[in-house]
Structures are given as structure tokens and as C-alpha cells.
Nucleic acid binder design. Structure first.
Length: 345
DNA sequence: TAGACGTGGAA
DNA sequence: TTTCCAAGTCT
């Protein structure tokens, strides 16, 4: 049963695998090149909760600027954060630098799942994926695609997250000893293009004959997910402070929201609390408008105010040339705010 | 363990 | 317009 599923799926993958910049062709042995695990690692971290389409240009940029893990390890953290700007989940970029430095210090990536799991930013999924894809080790790779495919294949109606235990057991049973990396990527391609969340294309599925969820009638209902909680509405204010064709930028501290990223100064809004509306300096503030932005866990209405001042604000920050604002590495929220300020000014 | 943590595209 | 989500991790 498990062998039937894996051999059928691998046969399908040999024929229909997507060609992606970080992939080797199906069925080929793992490339014997130190750049290979680096590229697999980088792509896997970028792909966490992020679409292939969004990742592609970032992967090209990172591998062009930093072709090896040693290059990335030697890069200033600020440069890496700025290059990551717009991709989201910035703790990934902070951990990327940490991880690159550890790996470079060790002379390369470890090749076992357990050792990989110890590196910053690598959880159960990513460690298994790298072990299987980059090193050809047998590993059971479970991500949201695998959860969806497996819950349908075996008609697992238990809701998440409780279903994870049985899903992992089933995934373990159908994962082949050989080509477990190709098998994982085949499951992802299947989940991405055929066994999709809302409208699975079961008629095109190589596993339709083996799918208990399809036999039971409503595979699109699986996996059963817990109800979502409503997102709170938050308000805040960001400040565009200009002097002599330069704008005052700060770097957000800590590991919280947008931590480590350049930003416009603001009034201390967070996902948990509205901003104070207290500007960082006193000035003749003018309204530029409001930016709407949705995070995973809150909606934000960010008012944007602008002013020209003569002095330098107190506290840490830097004057950034207004003409180079697109090179500042602002996360999307503040890139939107900057655009608004520039259009109003 | 449930919540924090981004973004842009699809429906 | 709003909701949902896409190759998760960390605390």
C-alpha cells in the first residue's frame, strides 16, 4: 500500500515535477557541490509560509549577492535584513544570519536531521526537508501540503492539531527509503497543483485510485481545521521627518514585530495596542493620509504625518537620502507609508 | 500550547 | 471588500 503510493507518486513526479531555481531534476543523485545544501537551506527557509512566486526573485537576489554560505556568513546583518525586506516573517532573516555563521564556523552544513534541527530557524519540517533533499538521507517531511494530502488519502477526519500524530504516522508509512527527498517534493507539487486546499483536481490526481477521502465523497473538507479568531483593529501613526532631502529612519529593536528592520519612527503601536499619537519630535505636522495593512493577527490603520525640521531628532536613527528610499530595506508597511508621504509632500 | 509573527495573490 | 491562505518556527 505505502509502496504503491510512493512509487506511483514518484513516477508522476518524474514526469510532471516543476522546474524551480533551487531544484535538481527528478531522479538525479544529490549534486556533490557545497553550494547545493546552501541553496536548499536558503530556499526552504524562504518558503516557510511563503509562496513560490514570492520567493523566486528573493532567491535569485540572495544567491547572486551571496553565492555561498560563507559569503552570507560574512555579510553585515543589516545588509541581509534589507535584502529580505518585503518577504515577511523577519525572524527568518535574523536566524538566517545566525545559522549561516554557525554553519560557516563548522565548515559546512551537518547532514543529519537531528543536527540540522539544532540550527537557528530550522524546525521539524525544514530539518527533515534539508536532510532528505540536500543530503539524500531518509527523512519524513511533513508540512501543510503533506498534512492535506495525507489527511485526504487516509480520510482522517480528526481536526488539526490533534490529527498531527496520526498524519505523521501515515506519512512515515508511505515515505520510501530511497528518494525520500523527491517524494517530499512530489507531495508538495501534488499539494500545490492538484490536491489544493479548496478545489482539489481529483480527476488529474495520480493517487485518485488510492484516496479514501475521495471515496468518502468530500476530500475538500479535509483536513478539518479549528475555527479562526477575529483579528483586532489597531491604529497607529508613522512620522516622515525630512531635512535637506533626507528622511529620518530608525531601526526597530528586538525580536518583535518587524524587529531588526529599518522603519519610519512611529507612536508605539503594536498588534496588541493602539499607538499613543505622540510624535517623536515637536513640529508642524501635516497629514499625508492613512495606510491600511493586514498582519497575520491584526488589521492596522496607520496614519502618516510629515514635517520638515531643522534639528536632528534625539535617540538612535539615521538621515537617509530621500531619493534612495527604495534602497533602505523598509518592510512593506513602511514602504507604503513612505510612498504616501512622498505623494503628499 | 496557543499566540506572535508579514505579505501578496486568489476567490 | 474580505477572507483565506503558502514548503513553519519560536516561546
Amino acid at each position: 500500500m505505502g509502496d504503491d503510493i510512493s512509487s506511483t507518486l514518484l513516477g508522476w513526479y518524474d514526469k510532471y515535477a516543476r522546474s524551480l531555481p533551487w531544484r535538481s531534476p527528478p531522479g538525479e543523485p544529490v549534486p556533490d557541490d557545497p553550494a547545493w545544501p546552501y541553496r536548499v537551506w536558503l530556499s526552504e527557509v524562504m518558503l516557510q509560509q511563503t509562496t513560490v512566486a514570492a520567493v523566486k526573485p528573493y532567491f535569485e537576489k540572495f544567491t547572486r549577492i551571496w553565492p555561498s554560505v560563507e559569503d552570507l556568513a560574512a555579510a553585515p546583518e543589516d545588509d541581509v535584513m534589507a535584502a529580505w525586506a518585503g518577504l515577511g516573517y523577519y525572524s527568518r532573516a535574523r536566524n538566517l544570519v545566525k545559522c549561516a555563521r554557525e554553519v560557516a564556523g563548522q565548515g559546512g552544513f551537518p547532514r543529519t536531521e537531528a543536527e540540522l534541527r539544532e540550527l537557528p530557524g530550522l524546525g521539524a519540517y525544514t530539518a527533515a526537508a534539508i536532510a532528505a533533499i540536500a543530503f539524500g538521507e531518509r527523512a519524513v517531511v511533513v508540512d501543510a501540503n503533506v498534512e492535506r494530502v495525507v489527511s485526504r488519502l487516509f480520510n482522517i477526519a480528526e481536526p488539526l492539531p490533534a490529527a498531527r500524530k496520526i498524519i505523521r504516522e501515515r506519512a512515515e508509512e508511505i515515505t520510501p527509503d530511497d528518494r525520500s527527498g523527491d517524494f517530499a517534493q512530489a507531495m508538495m507539487d501534488l499539494g500545490s497543483g492538484i490536491c489544493t486546499s479548496k478545489a482539489p483536481r481529483c480527476l488529474l490526481c495520480p493517487l485518485q485510485g488510492e484516496c479514501a477521502g475521495l471515496k468518502a465523497g468530500e476530500p475538500e473538507r479535509l483536513p478539518v481545521k479549528p475555527p479562526k479568531k477575529p483579528k483586532p483593529e489597531r491604529t497607529g501613526t508613522a512620522y516622515w521627518i525630512e531635512r535637506d532631502r533626507h528622511v529620518w529612519l530608525v531601526t526597530r529593536q528586538g525580536t518583535g514585530m518587524l524587529g531588526g528592520m529599518r522603519a519610519l519612527p512611529d507612536d508605539g503601536w503594536s498588534a496588541r495596542q493602539d499607538g499613543s499619537e505622540q510624535p517623536p519630535v515637536s513640529a508642524e505636522w501635516q497629514d499625508a493620509g492613512t495606510v491600511r495593512h493586514t498582519f497575520t493577527h491584526a488589521h492596522l490603520a496607520l496614519k502618516v504625518k510629515y514635517a520638515r525640521i531643522a534639528a536632528t531628532p534625539g535617540g538612535a536613527g539615521e538621515w537617509w537620502p530621500v531619493g534612495d528610499i527604495d534602497k533602505a530595506g523598509l518592510p512593506t508597511l513602511f514602504a507604503k507609508a513612505a510612498r504616501l508621504a512622498l505623494s503628499a509632500d
